[in-house]
Design a binder for these strands. Structure first.
Length: 457
RNA sequence: GCGGUUAUAGCUCAGGUGGUUAGAGCAUCAGCUUGUGGCGCUGAGGGUCGCCGGUUCGAGUCCGGUUAAUCGCCCCA
């Protein structure tokens, strides 16, 4: 016999878990809608052409590709097939893949529906995404993202609003968080120092890990990767990072900009500093919004502000470690990749599954509850009473009662055990005598008391 | 793609240095209780010890391989 199992990195969510997941989702939905964001859903499957080239080289490799249907091998590339070169063969046997995030499908939707959309387009989207990487703690192959995006407006009031929406959601979830914020323009300033765009990209990957591997670790890894001339850049960033307040950091960046010769990168840096400063002013309470000059974020489509949410709450056990539980940023070129130019967008994502894991570790999820609920289970003693019981159910339900009929007529003991396990507050018992007398027995499952009532007309 | 750990009943796990018929708790089913639940007691069913091979008189236990899960690395929510 075949033993059932799940593919690695995927999970089932039973009724108890779903109550808790929906609790999180409903808070987000309420906040999103209160800010005027409308719902969007897109298919799990997208054309690979839509997805590829948006997430960087690493991201492309993590795309789940779906085999073409039918006799796909007849169209396969013979050379690569013979050489068993899977990577090169893939494009000839797979045209579609599972979405990797919600931002790119949204951008595709915007471009395809530009005639129907009134810009700025504000949408929220809460759906699963798939990534073919090695699962581990807090890391799944199928997981849910909850995205909010503003497309077609380049004012940074959107950034401020999104940050405040992060704050609202996590406040309602009673979870303390820190929102780390940075600007690609600030990091761009180090391209000349790195020497090449490629070296700069590697530099960003390394400094992004600063909070994990420490400053010494960053220096070590930069040297190992042969990025010796970026060490000075890191030393400046590190010194900036150690400054106590956002204002101090911004001031340090401004004076750094004054010393830059390259006009183009100087302008980008100044712009970045200006934007961050403005956002921090707009956000009403910005104590938990920290400028973090080492924050880079992996997705290659970000061009302006980048942000990330990390847990900062004493209720979470100290040994519970998980990466960021949300992130996002501004992207100026995403729709441009699909042929719609000069449309700027900004959006953030909530990582539902990690938020769930954190809330569980912090004991902040609503418990399944041992209290009896108000539903009533109707138990019929035998087949002859079942019609009568079914009729009674319908009548009581029409009176507004929450009522369920046990589907079948096993022993009463068994039916009452079921009522207990499901936490019914009361049970109705129907036997021959009740049927004859046109009554029913109502039993309170908490107190055990029971009384006979008349069958409703 | 690279390392570490684990794999025994439906679930969670025990099973020193190899040795009769592989155990427990929970869950399931039945009975104590003919139309009354939670608690309790009694009993029953349920196993190719992941898979393949090796060492041995003898392997759940030791060795090699393999598959899967899981935790790290890379990268990311």
């Amino acid at each position: 016999m075949e033993k059932p199992g799940l593919p690695s990195g995927t999970r089932d969510f039973g009724p108890e878990t779903m109550i808790q997941r929906k609790y999180i989702l409903s808070i987000m939905q309420q906040v999103f809608e209160s800010h005027g964001f409308g719902a969007l859903e897109t298919p799990a499957l997208e054309n690979l052409k839509t997805l590829q080239g948006k997430y960087g080289e690493e991201g492309d490799q993590l795309l789940f590709k779906v085999l073409n249907s039918g006799d796909f091998l007849s169209k396969a590339d013979n050379q690569w097939l013979a050489e068993k070169n899977s990577k090169a063969l893939a494009p000839s046997i797979s045209d579609r893949g599972l979405r990797y995030d919600l931002t790119v499908p949204m951008a595709r939707f915007v471009v395809m529906n530009r005639d129907k959309i009134s810009f700025p387009f504000k949408r929220y989207q809460m759906q699963p995404v798939w990534r073919a990487d090695r699962p581990q703690k807090g890391r799944y192959r199928e997981f849910w993202q909850c995205d909010i995006d503003v497309v077609g407006a380049n004012s940074i009031v959107s950034e401020a609003e999104l940050i405040e929406m992060y704050q609202e959601v996590f406040a309602q979830l009673k979870l303390g968080v820190v929102i780390r914020i940075n600007h690609r323009g600030i990091l761009d300033a180090f391209v000349p120092m790195a020497g090449s765009l490629e070296a700069w990209q590697q530099f960003m990957i390394v400094i992004d890990k600063a909070d994990k591997i420490g400053s010494d670790g960053v220096v070590k890894e930069l040297n190992e990767r042969g990025l010796c001339n970026t060490v000075a850049a890191w030393e400046f960033l590190e010194k900036t990072q150690e400054l106590p307040t956002n204002e101090d950091k911004l001031a340090a960046l401004r004076s750094f900009a004054d010393g830059l010769n390259n006009q183009e990168f100087k302008e980008r840096l100044v712009r970045g500093v200006f934007d961050i400063s403005k956002i921090l002013t707009l956000v009403e309470s910005n104590q938990n919004v920290h400028l973090d000059v080492s924050l880079a974020r992996g997705l290659s489509y970000y061009t302006g502000t980048v942000m990330e949410v990390v847990v900062d709450d004493g209720k979470v056990p100290a040994d519970f470690k998980i990466g960021s539980i949300g992130g996002g940023g501004r992207y100026d070129n995403l729709t441009g990749m699909f042929g719609l130019k000069d449309v700027s967008g900004v959006g953030v994502s909530f990582g539902l599954d990690r938020i769930y894991d954190v809330l569980q570790a912090a004991a902040l999820l609503p418990s399944a509850g041992t209290e009896k609920h108000e539903s009533c289970l109707v138990c019929a003693m035998d087949e002859a009473c079942l019609d009568y019981a079914y009729d009674l159910c319908n009548r009581l339900r029409k009176q507004g009662e929450k009522i369920e009929l046990y589907p079948g007529t096993p022993k009463l003991k068994k039916q009452l055990e079921y009522a207990n396990q499901r936490n019914f507050g009361s049970a109705i018992i129907i036997g021959d005598s009740e049927m004859e007398q046109k009554t029913y027995v109502m039993k309170n499952l908490v107190t055990g008391a029971q009384e006979t009532r008349k069958f409703p007309q």
